[in-house]
Design a protein around this nucleic acid. Structure first.
Length: 303
DNA sequence: TATTACC
DNA sequence: GGTAATAAGCTTCCA
DNA sequence: TGGAAG
């Protein structure tokens, strides 16, 4: 048993020597260190956001399991929020303290999935996400697809931000002012993806069926819905090498040197020391969907 | 990882 | 006392 | 209506 103090809160740790990432030779203690150290950078992305946890007490080679409902045994100082679900409700963790992240790491929680809305208005997303997943391992095509998204958003006067998921793809994210509901956000995202796929039919598709995608990049907008989540920036992923999800600058996406798992628990802090937060302007760039929707309709009419 | 159910 | 089971859910598409 | 998919 170890013990770590974070101001008013104390986290008891267990089995810190247990290996969670065998390829990277990282232990549970290393994961606790990582989350403790990265908390400052993660914090704005975690604020008031309900989470789903994915835990791997036996390491990343095991299946792990999702956890949403906060169990009784979590300490009472861990914040949670009650959300409705089909036939009832559920209390989800909000990780707004360094101590909470450390506690979750000790629970072998490797990946944090965050809602696209915040606890006070769970039906009103504060971000819209287009998830770009490659058919094979052609990351160049994913980079290209992300840049295509950016270009079309620019035509609509919509700011967009990009992060690597730390797994295979990229997420293009638009900050929203929360006046729209999930339904409005999703239908806008669907039309946006439709226009983009029509422009580049050989590269991009909105086909949900794998069979019909024919090697094209799938523009997945399905996450723009109540109760859906995306990986939180700087969360670790349960992959060999301990990659992390990382906010990127657009010029990095234009570079062939970018790879989907370039940043890891081992090398992230070098990056954080060198560059400014690529998502610095995120909160100040929040947009009203309806305005973008009107511009998209005009663009649809003229083509 | 931690708890509960069950033998 | 030991051992196994359990810890998620929303939307869309299509058979 | 149910399962796959993400």
């Amino acid at each position: 048993m170890g013990r770590r103090r974070f101001g008013r809160h104390t986290v008891d740790t267990s089995r810190e020597e247990k290996t969670l990432f065998p390829e990277a030779d990282l232990t549970k203690g290393d994961l606790i260190d990582y989350f403790t150290r990265v908390f400052g950078s993660m914090k704005p992305h975690l604020a008031d956001r309900p989470l789903s946890l994915r835990r791997y007490p036996d390491g990343i080679r095991s299946e792990g399991f999702f956890q949403k409902q906060v169990p009784d045994y979590f300490p009472s100082w861990i914040r949670s929020t009650r959300v409705r679900k089909e036939g009832g409700h559920q209390d989800l963790v909000i990780a707004d303290r360094q101590a909470t992240l450390a506690y979750l790491a000790n629970q072998a929680c490797i990946t944090l999935h965050g809602w696209l809305s915040r606890a006070d208005r769970p039906d009103h997303p504060d971000q819209l996400v287009i998830d770009l997943d490659p058919a094979g391992r052609d990351f160049g095509a994913v980079r290209q697809a992300a840049l295509r998204c950016r270009t079309l958003f620019e035509e609509l006067a919509v700011p967009s931000f990009v992060k690597s998921s730390g797994s295979r793809g990229l997420h293009v994210t638009v900050p929203l002012d929360r006046r729209a509901t999930f339904d409005e956000a999703r239908s806008f995202a669907q039309r946006f993806a439709g226009v983009l796929a029509a422009r580049f039919p050989k590269e991009l598709t909105t086909e949900q069926r794998k069979q019909k995608r024919a090697g094209r990049i799938y523009l997945d907008v399905g996450r723009n819905a109540y109760g859906q989540t995306v990986v939180v920036p700087y969360s670790t992923r349960a992959r060999p090498g301990a990659p992390v999800a990382v906010p990127l600058r657009w010029d990095e996406v234009a570079s062939r040197r970018l790879s989907p798992r370039r940043y890891t628990v081992r090398n992230l802090f070098r990056r954080l020391a060198q560059i400014e937060d690529p998502w610095q302007g995120f909160a100040r760039s929040r947009i009203l969907i309806r305005a973008a929707q009107r511009r998209l309709e005009r663009l649809e009419d003229s083509t």
